[in-house]
Design a protein around this nucleic acid. Structure first.
Length: 815
RNA sequence: GCCGAAGUGGCGGAAUGGUAGACGCGGCAGUCUCAAAAACUGUUGGGAGGCAACUCUCGUGUCGGUUCGACUCCGACCUUCGGCACCA
């Protein structure tokens, strides 16, 4: 009999041994196939909570499973260390962000080590250290030189709480800041952008990716590709410079239905086009629009507003004079900032027309409806063209092309594609980030820092109060420099990079973390990339996961890598809730894993997290459920530790025993492959329960028993690595279980000899019979009809059919 | 409003066209104990009948449909969660 299961002791012992023996270190010179399993790196907030474990434990289990299956596995870990919380903590508590961050990392690394994962700590990577951000800056320069980074003035998102600009992707629904939740406002500022739009079409290609449909849909919606036409409407007044204004429309086939013309209130031509007598009213309206938040302006269901400018455009297709209005439902940032109003066939235009009594003209009728009468409701589908001059009678799909052809031949417009996605704003007015390696010279203008001058170190002595301006601006020793081109006095860029730039390429760095002359060693990168399995939360769908795809496509375009997608397979785990709610500091229901690890062990925490439900759906933390898992590990401990005494061996029992053993190997293997961790554990528990019964009866040989125990431990090893290793040693095996191959099942032994045949009458269960697998259809039917319980239910009825499903069911249909 | 996921015992969940509720928690009963806890064993969806082995019946958000047979497929709806949202 063994001593009691003492997880604290054995977990400490084996973690030390694995580290000392470097058994989880990954090398490139292996003849095994490579497998790169990656979990999204944690932000250095200070404490790992059970949500982090929920992301990390199952992915480690899968990585361990792949490792035992014979793959050369890379499963690294690091820290996303730049970002606002560090700076905010610094402001609040007077600790330097660097000190705060590094202290948190120390603590989190200790917590992470207690998980018992196969992380190769030699490859640890911290994004806020100069040896890392040097290369983040290097990439910025590469983007600049490739024409993919540019500086421009634009209306940008401004978070008044964080005192910095944000990318569009970082403004969540209802116009809230992704970090702090405050209402974001708009500011006109000159900022750095990355040309993600250039890759919009490539980013829509998911054909080689095994990603959840949900994320692909979110990215597709975010990119928002629309095909249509750009059409120029002629200005009636001829004293104005451009002679026409362009609109974007997805329905050029409705162009004969235009009855008004709309501009965004901020459209640059508004001030020229407004008639003198309407100027006051227009200016008042524009000012009113500007006062509204972005969210208020774009809210659906809002009553339409607008003002007539007092001037007109000409619809070149029919020569009609169309009044120009401005309205807040047209935004300058999409399409051309101008819209042709077709009230009969667009919901919004219809509302606008109703509100301001503008004419509604039907130009498309539903197929089969010949009436040319104005319709009561908006019809936004395709149909037959009417009131459209020479195009009358054409189906609108053909009319679309015919009108485009006409526009193109006359030079009035052309087919085009518009995207919803905007270029990625990457500069931030904050201190704790990688400085943007650019210099402003009065003579030479914007000059990039030379590659050999990297890293541009973040000064440690900057004042970082949130003033709305970059803290680095006031750090003279940082700002003042010389121009790399003319050597005259110059100023450094004082903005830092969005932290999503750091997480764009960290998975490349893991392949050669000590690389000194380049961000990565190409040979090692070629060996490991792309990531075979990437796991993490779905909240990064249109931020990190989109940016990283763009980043890889961009550096492939530059010739730096030869693959064009970073993550071949993506999996999003669900959320762990506690006391019926999502865990959060404000709700005060955060579960800290440390206490549970100390009490019942990391193996139990790992196993419990995988047992609470399907990984992709999340689950609820429950203290009593957790105790249940620990009880099971205890049962395993006792089962394996107790001497097995063979009593009378029975051939039938031994057969069944082998069958159960191999069925379990199969089930566990298949469930692991599909991330069905909860049912994998259930089958391991069933196996344990079964073994307990056999242990009591002693009906199988010692040899079979020992074999089964060996399998049990191997199957348990990825989930509960410490207890498996301990019991492996205690049962006389050689170290280490984690270097053993994954067991294979024998299909011959999985096959059952007897099956339970279900007998139904009119689809209702009436009897169950244990029959040989080989039973014929005729035998099965006869057997079923002969059963007493069946007879009682078919008495006096006429049997119309008997359905037989081999190995499953006989259903007697009787009336 | 649109898109996606989900809805099953007291609870977490299992079963993806063929035995609904695997496995675990909780409950109940028992063993051990002076007693309790722990551990172990048995039992546990609701209702009705039976001394009993057992039998019948209802039951997977709601309503309909397809099928010999539906938690599973189809249609409509309700609820919860996530995402998007005047995108021309």
């Amino acid at each position: 009999m063994l001593l009691n299961y003492n997880p604290q002791e054995i977990e400490k012992k084996w973690q030390a041994r694995w580290a000392a023996d470097h058994i989880y270190e990954a090398t490139e010179n292996s003849n095994r196939p490579k497998f790169y399993a990656l979990t999204m790196l944690p932000y250095t907030s200070g404490d790992l909570h059970i949500g982090h474990w929920y992301a990390m434990a199952p992915s480690d289990v899968y990585a361990r499973f792949k490792r035992m299956q014979g793959y050369n596995v890379l499963h690294p870990m690091g820290f996303d260390a730049f970002g606002l919380p560090a700076e905010n903590a610094a402001i609040k508590h007077g600790i330097h962000p660097h000190v705060w961050t590094m202290r948190n990392i120390e603590h989190m690394r200790d917590q992470l080590k207690r998980i018992g994962a196969i992380y190769d700590w030699n490859r640890e990577m911290i994004t806020c250290l100069p040896e890392y951000y040097r290369w983040t800056q290097w990439f910025f320069l590469k983007f600049y030189h490739a024409g993919l980074a540019y500086r421009a003035k634009a209306p940008v998102n401004w978070c008044p709480e964080c005192q910095t600009v944000l990318a569009n992707e970082q403004v969540l629904g209802e116009g809230c800041c992704e970090r702090c939740g405050s209402q974001v406002t708009k500011k006109d500022l000159e900022q750095w952008f990355f040309r993600i739009t250039r890759f919009a079409d490539e980013l829509l290609d998911f054909s080689h990716l095994d990603w959840p449909e949900r994320i692909k849909t979110m990215q597709r919606n975010w990119i928002g590709r629309s095909e249509g036409a750009e059409v120029s409407f002629k200005l009636e007044r001829e004293d104005i410079k451009p002679e026409g204004i362009k609109v974007f429309t997805t329905r050029p086939d409705t162009i004969f239905g235009v009855s008004f013309f709309l501009l965004a209130p901020e459209h640059p031509l508004v001030s020229q086009l407004v008639a003198p007598e309407r100027r006051d009213e227009v200016e008042r309206y524009v000012a009113w629009c500007r006062r509204q938040s972005e969210y208020e302006r774009t809210a659906v269901g809002k009553e339409k507003t607008g003002v007539f400018l007092g001037s007109y455009v000409i619809n070149r297709l029919n020569g009609e004079k169309i009044p120009i209005w401005i309205t807040d439902y047209v935004s300058l940032s999409y399409g051309t900032g101008a819209v042709m109003g077709v009230p009969a066939h667009d919901e919004r235009d219809f509302e606008f027309a109703k509100k301001f009594n503008l004419p509604v003209r039907t130009v498309i009728t539903p197929p089969g409806c010949s009436s040319k009468k104005p319709m009561e409701e908006v019809y936004s589908e395709t149909g037959i063209m009417v009131n459209s001059g020479e195009f009358d009678g054409l189906p609108s799909e053909q009319g679309y092309n015919a009108i485009c052809d006409l526009l193109e031949s006359r030079g009035w417009g052309k087919r085009t594609v518009t995207y919803r996605i905007r270029d990625w704003l990457v500069s931030r007015q904050r201190y704790w980030g990688a400085p943007i390696p650019m210099i402003y010279c009065n003579k030479c203008g914007i000059v990039p820092v030379a590659e050999e001058d990297l890293p541009i170190l973040l000064p440690s002595d900057a004042e970082f109060k949130p003033t709305g301006e970059s803290p680095l601006k006031y750090c003279q020793s940082f700002v003042n420099t010389t121009c790399p081109r003319c050597s005259g006095p110059a100023r450094r860029e004082v903005d830092t990079m969005d932290t999503f730039m750091c997480s764009n390429w960290y998975f490349l760095r893991y392949t050669s973390p000590k690389s000194d002359g380049a961000p990565f060693e190409t040979e090692k990168l070629k060996y490991w990339m792309p990531v075979d399995l990437y796991t993490g939360g779905a909240e990064h769908a249109v931020m990190h996961l989109l940016y990283s795809r763009f980043f890889i496509k961009a550096i492939k375009y530059m010739g730096l890598v030869d693959f064009d997608e970073p993550f071949t397979r993506l999996f999003n785990q669900g959320t762990i809730i506690y006391l019926g709610d999502k865990m959060s500091k404000s709700r005060g229901n955060v579960v800290a894993p440390d206490k549970y690890v100390s009490e019942l062990g990391a193996d139990a925490v790992r196993a419990y997290l995988m047992f609470v439900g399907p990984w992709e759906l999340g689950g609820e933390w429950s203290d009593s459920g957790f105790v249940g898992i620990s009880r099971w590990l205890n049962r395993v401990w006792n089962l394996v530790g107790m001497d097995y005494v063979s009593q009378v061996t029975e051939l039938a029992v031994e057969k069944e025993f082998l069958n159960v053993t191999h069925r379990t190997i199969k089930k566990v293997s298949e469930d692991l492959e599909r991330f069905h961790f909860n049912t994998m554990l259930a089958s391991l528990m069933e196996f344990t329960n079964y073994l307990s019964k056999i242990q009591e009866s002693g009906n199988v040989s010692v040899l079979l028993w020992q074999q089964a125990i060996t399998y049990l431990l191997l199957l348990l090893a990825p989930t509960a690595p410490h207890i498996a290793e301990e019991l492996w040693a205690k049962t006389g095996h050689t170290y280490s279980i984690h270097n053993r191959p994954w067991p294979e099942w024998d299909e011959e032994l999985v096959r059952e000899e007897k099956i339970t045949l279900v007998i139904e009458v009119n689809g209702k269960l009436r009897d169950k019979l244990l029959v040989p697998v080989s039973i014929s259809e005729i035998e099965a039917k006869e057997l079923a009809l002969g059963q007493e319980k069946v007879k009682a239910h078919i008495e006096g009825k006429k049997i119309s059919r008997v359905i037989y499903v081999p190995g499953r069911v006989v259903n007697i249909v009787a009336k």
